[in-house]
Amino acid sequence: MRFMVMVKATTDSETGVMPSAKLLADMGKFNEELVKAGVMLAAEGLQPSAKGARVRFSGAKRSVIDGPFAETKELVAGFWLWQVRSLDEAIEWVKRCPNPFEHGESEIEIRQVFEADDFGAEFTPELREQEERRRTQVEELNKRASR
């Protein structure tokens, strides 16, 4: 099972406060444990929402909203993508994580990623084949980019 593990933003992360050297080292150690355990598929921190935008859809209409966004509790400051056996295993890993914002309160959200079988009969063999081709193309691009 794959899970998206999201570090929720705080006022500090939204104003660009950077983590301390200690927190960077602690997170690096935690991330190394995830890699050694074969859990981590990806991980990234995100710039504050002031450097981002949202695109709102209303039928065929599109409108762009520039950051920053007011509700920090709804924003994501960073994420991991993990491969684990269950939600319980993901929770246990999160419990071992250093506090992302050291001295304050932090929240990490865990959400399971949809897999092809979750979509049932609507995900036809043709669509499955198309999805597999796309995944293979992305893997190849990632291999080239890491060289």
Rank of each mutant, 00 (worst) to 15 (best):
Met1Asp: 14
Arg2Ala: 05
Arg2Tyr: 15
Met4His: 06
Val5Phe: 02
Val5Trp: 02
Lys8Arg: 15
Thr10Met: 04
Thr11Gly: 03
Thr11Phe: 03
Glu14Asp: 03
Thr15Phe: 01
Gly16Leu: 05
Gly16His: 09
Val17Leu: 06
Met18Lys: 15
Met18Phe: 14
Met18His: 03
Pro19Asn: 10
Ser20Ile: 05
Lys22Ala: 15
Leu23Arg: 11
Leu24Ala: 13
Asp26Ala: 11
Asp26Phe: 04
Glu33Val: 00
Val35Thr: 07
Val35Arg: 10
Val35Asn: 08
Val35Met: 08
Ala37Met: 11
Val39Tyr: 10
Val39His: 12
Leu41Ala: 15
Ala42Trp: 11
Ala42Ile: 08
Gly45Val: 09
Gly45Ser: 15
Gly45Cys: 10
Gln47Phe: 06
Pro48Gln: 05
Pro48Asp: 09
Ser49Thr: 07
Ala50Ile: 07
Lys51Cys: 04
Ala53Thr: 01
Val55Ala: 10
Arg56Phe: 12
Phe57Pro: 00
Ser58Pro: 01
Gly59Asn: 12
Gly59Trp: 12
Arg62Gln: 14
Ser63His: 05
Ile65Gly: 07
Ile65Cys: 03
Pro68His: 02
Pro68Ser: 06
Phe69Ser: 09
Phe69Tyr: 11
Glu71Val: 12
Thr72Ala: 03
Thr72Val: 14
Leu75Cys: 02
Leu75Phe: 01
Val76Gly: 00
Ala77Thr: 13
Ala77Cys: 08
Ala77Phe: 13
Gly78Val: 11
Gly78Asp: 12
Gly78Arg: 12
Trp80Ala: 00
Trp80Gly: 03
Leu81Ser: 06
Leu81Ile: 15
Trp82Pro: 08
Gln83Lys: 15
Val84Glu: 07
Val84Arg: 06
Arg85Glu: 15
Ser86Trp: 06
Asp88Val: 00
Ile91Pro: 02
Ile91Met: 08
Glu92Gln: 15
Glu92Asn: 14
Trp93Pro: 04
Trp93Ser: 06
Trp93Ala: 06
Val94Arg: 00
Arg96His: 07
Cys97Tyr: 01
Pro98Ile: 04
Asn99Gln: 06
Asn99Arg: 03
Pro100Trp: 08
Pro100Leu: 06
Phe101Glu: 13
Glu102Gln: 10
His103Phe: 03
Ser106Asn: 12
Glu107Asn: 14
Ile108Tyr: 09
Glu109Lys: 00
Glu109Thr: 02
Ile110Leu: 00
Ile110Ala: 09
Val113Gly: 10
Val113Pro: 03
Glu115Gly: 10
Glu115Val: 12
Ala116Gln: 14
Asp117Thr: 10
Asp118Leu: 05
Phe119Tyr: 14
Ala121Leu: 11
Glu122Arg: 09
Phe123Asn: 13
Pro125Asp: 12
Leu127Trp: 04
Leu127Gly: 04
Glu129Asn: 14
Arg133Phe: 09
Arg133Cys: 09
Arg134Pro: 01
Arg135Asn: 11
Arg135Ala: 14
Thr136Ala: 15
Val138Ile: 15
Leu141Arg: 09
Asn142Thr: 00
Asn142Gly: 04
Lys143Gln: 14
Lys143Met: 08
Arg144Trp: 01
Arg147Pro: 00
